[in-house]
């Protein structure tokens, strides 16, 4: 016998299911009026410092089909690399956004500011993906193809250099990026356990 540890185990995850929007983005499910507005409707308020960007993409399954029922969340630092809640953070940056794949096209769009470097890491946005068929939320990150990503502690830990590209959003226009997520198969996105 040994002394008892007073620690607990994490509650097991279960899939968010196809109706995740009811709880997380009710207006998307057709439920209006219970809350004044959906939580995490925007990552930034007017007047946020930095470059306003839009990131568009979709979440593909192993057959290449774009999910129509995925729910995504993002979390990021402000333009100076300071996270909301930390000293000196831009009060116009909430840093958190929720968005869904479109029910017809599967496309999502995130409008935010380009984050700054935080803690020795290249500018990035954390993503969390929940959907029917995903039994535990998937963590990944969006980096940018027009930033210096060398020396980033996460990217540099990806042994197969071509797989790093799966985390790098591609410029498609002025302040516009494309970031597709592949759950499985060719070009499978690197998912994180951090």
């Amino acid at each position: 016998m040994v002394q008892e540890l007073k620690t607990l185990q994490e509650t097991p995850s279960q899939t968010a299911g196809p109706y995740v929007h009811i709880g997380c983005i009710p207006s998307f499910a057709g439920i209006d009026g219970v809350y004044p507005e959906d939580l995490g409707k925007r990552a930034i308020e007017d007047g946020a410092k930095g470059q306003v960007i839009t990131i568009t993409g979709s979440v593909h399954d192993g057959t290449g089909w774009a999910l129509r029922d995925a729910m995504l969340e993002s979390w990021q630092a402000d333009a100076a690399g300071i996270y909301p809640g930390q000293d000196g953070a831009d009060p116009k940056v909430t840093g958190f956004c929720r968005f869904a794949a479109d029910m017809d096209t599967g496309e999502y769009t995130l409008r935010t500011v380009k984050p700054g470097r935080a803690g020795g890491q290249a500018p990035h946005i954390a993503l969390w993906i929940a959907a029917r068929g995903i039994n535990i939320g998937l963590q990944t990150r969006i980096y940018f193809d027009d930033e210096d990503n060398s020396g980033d502690p996460v990217l540099s830990r990806i042994e197969q250099a071509p797989r790093r590209e799966t985390l790098i959003a591609k410029t498609t226009g002025d302040g516009a990026y494309r970031f597709d997520i592949r759950l499985q198969g060719d070009g499978e996105t690197v998912f994180l356990d951090m």
Partner: peptide, 15 residues
Amino acid sequence: ARSPKWPLLSLGSTV
């Protein structure tokens, strides 16, 4: 069809 086939990349948490 919705589950990654490659292992997750495990790293210590960051800020």
